[in-house]
Structures are given as structure tokens and as C-alpha cells.
């Protein structure tokens, strides 16, 4: 992994000063914080410091990362207690004194050091019914959609699957309801499908029964940590909750159903 060399490449002079990083090291059996000191310069992000530590003093320090530009969502961690992407957390955004703590996402089982087992998210996604488009609008097999009609879905599709929203969600983090609740990321995914102008599938029963949408009590922690600034709660979860309520709890709808056989 060569990211550490970026931090030493030329490009202008910059002041460098030592800084201590308190990094959690361990695995499923347990672990503890270790202190590492490395030089920090202008513009550096936390991921740069982790890479420097790997190259200088801990070559076996495990950390997941790819793009280093906030696009792939691999380097999620908890920095000074807040879920963030390490590649997008600049050192000058953190308090200037004291050690910087870096620990793995706590809502997922630890694998090693900063790497966690995020397989829950992949399993949960598979349980959501896939995109099923209506018949094409034009004879050449294409569809027509107005930009205004896709803006809403495009917001959800910005998601980089960093799973920070899952990490901060108390239903998963504190109550460990992974088997009953898919979590905010997958609710955003479901919303992107449900609100897709071409989609014809109905996922409301699943959202209510299998995916546990009722567990969310709208504390909006997920929205706060989203690095893509997706308004997870207001724009995706609440509208989905409203649809579920309309479908299953609305007394008028219930009444209509009695008289309307079929659906």
C-alpha cells in the first residue's frame, strides 16, 4: 500500500510537527489502544497518518482503504469518537492538542485493527427486491424521465456505501438488531428503488415485516454523519414510513380493502 508516499511527495514547503495517534489494535478476541507518533504536515488527512505509521513502525496495522478521495467509502472509522471517512478528515479540522484516537466502526464485529466485518450490509441488500422497470416508453426500448423526476432518486444514489450511517444507528450499534433491521443505508437503497420513476415493484410489506422500518425512531444521527450529505431521514426514511403507514394502518384504506377484493 503506497498511500504513505503521497504525504512525502514534493509540491511545496510545509511545516511538519509530531502528533500522537491512539489507534485501536486487536481482533474479535479483544484489543487495546496503542500510541504512535508521526509527523503531520499541511493538508494531511488521518488516512495519511495511518499510512505513515504503517510504513514507519507498524507494517502489519490493518486498515481498509481504496480511493483516498471520498468516493469509494472504504476507510470508515471512528475518529475522536465520531464516525468519519479517514481520507476526508483533515488534521486541521481536529483539535490541535492531545492524541487523535482512531478506532474501528463499533456497530460491526472487529476483524483486525481498523477493519470490521461489514458483511451484514451485503446480506441485507440482497434481501431487498431488485429493480423492476415498467415497459419501455418508446418503440426503440427506451424510457422518458424528466430531470425533476429523477433528482430525488439521484440524491440517494450518491451513496458510497461507507456504512457510517449503519455504524452510528443505535438500533444496530447499541441494540444489535442486525437480524431484524436493515439499517439506514439499506432504507436509502429501498427508497431509491421505491421512488425510481420506472420501478413497478412493491417493497412496503417487506419494509414493515422483514426490514424493520418501524425500529427507526428518527433521531437523525445517520443524516449527521453521511459524508455525501444525503438527507437520509427526512428524504428517504420518513417518506417510506409514511407509505408503510398508508398501506397498512390507514383506517380508510382498510375500509376500502374490505369492499375491494383483490389487492
Amino acid at each position: 500500500m503506497a498511500g504513505q508516499h503521497n504525504s512525502t511527495s514534493s509540491g511545496g514547503s510545509s511545516e511538519r510537527a509530531p502528533r500522537t495517534f491512539r489507534v485501536w489494535r486487536g481482533d474479535a478476541r479483544g484489543g487495546q489502544f496503542h500510541d504512535y507518533t508521526t509527523q503531520v504536515g499541511e493538508g494531511m488527512v488521518v488516512l495519511d497518518a495511518i499510512h505513515q505509521i504503517q510504513a514507519e513502525s507498524a507494517p502489519d496495522l490493518a486498515c481498509r482503504w481504496n480511493c483516498k478521495a471520498g468516493k469509494c467509502g472504504s476507510c470508515s472509522a471512528e475518529i475522536n469518537g465520531t464516525p468519519r471517512l479517514m481520507c476526508m478528515t483533515r488534521m486541521d479540522q481536529l483539535p490541535p492538542d492531545g492524541p487523535v484516537t482512531v478506532e474501528p466502526m463499533r456497530a460491526f464485529p472487529p476483524v483486525r485493527d481498523l477493519v470490521t466485518d461489514v458483511s451484514h450490509n451485503f446480506r441485507a441488500k440482497k434481501s431487498i427486491k431488485k429493480f423492476t422497470p415498467r415497459k419501455p416508453d418508446a418503440p426503440d426500448g427506451t424510457w422518458r424521465m424528466q430531470q425533476a423526476d429523477v433528482d430525488r432518486v439521484q440524491e440517494f444514489r450518491k451513496c458510497i456505501e461507507c456504512f457510517l450511517c449503519q455504524d452510528v444507528c443505535h438500533v444496530l450499534r447499541d441494540h444489535h438488531k442486525h437480524d431484524e433491521f436493515v439499517g439506514p443505508r439499506l432504507l436509502v437503497y429501498a427508497a431509491a428503488l421505491e421512488m425510481h420513476p420506472l420501478d413497478t415493484e412493491n417493497r412496503l410489506a417487506d419494509l414493515k415485516n422483514r426490514h424493520g422500518i418501524g425500529y427507526c425512531n428518527i433521531t437523525k444521527c445517520c443524516t449527521k454523519v453521511c459524508p455525501e450529505h444525503i438527507t437520509i431521514t427526512d428524504n428517504s426514511i420518513i417518506p417510506l414510513k409514511e407509505r408503510v403507514v398508508d398501506e397498512f394502518y390507514d383506517p380508510l384504506t382498510k375500509l376500502f380493502r374490505i369492499f375491494k377484493p383483490g389487492k
Partner: peptide, 20 residues
């Protein structure tokens, strides 16, 4: 490209609703 749209991709649109 059209196949991706059929699989759920949401490209930016032209004024007449096609892929920009």
C-alpha cells in the same frame, strides 16, 4: 448504456426526458 438504464441506472436527462 440503455441496458444499464434497464437495470436501474439513473442518468442525467435531456429536456425531452432522454439520457443527456
Amino acid at each position: 448504456v440503455r441496458e444499464l438504464e434497464a437495470w436501474g441506472a439513473v442518468f442525467d436527462r435531456t429536456r425531452d426526458g432522454r439520457i443527456l
